[in-house]
Amino acid sequence: MPVVFIPPHARRFVNGQKQIEVEGSTVEKLLRNLETEYPGIWDTLCVDDALKPGLAVAVDGNMSNRGLHQAVQTESEVHILPAVGGG
């Protein structure tokens, strides 16, 4: 099952867990499924069906620019990180 690394500011919704295994084939599905079990986490990370501004997704170490639509594999690691701008 994919593993979502819970960003520190959202851990209060998941009893302080740092990572959680959850079903889903996209980042959106993972977070929706997390929300069912841990209400509050969706609104902490997302707004208007997208990641909140300033946040980005990394899957298996790669920063993604597909946001919630990024596909994940069964063994994937998903991180929610600050969005980064380059020079």
Binding site: P7, P8, H9, R11, R12, G16, G54, P82
Partner: peptide, 22 residues
């Protein structure tokens, strides 16, 4: 506040965001 404390305050501040990784 992006730390596990996720504090909220009504006080105006120059600090826009606090990042936290551990």
């Amino acid at each position: 506040d992006m730390s596990p404390d996720a504090t909220t305050s009504d006080k105006p501040t120059n600090i826009y965001k606090k990042f936290f990784f551990e």
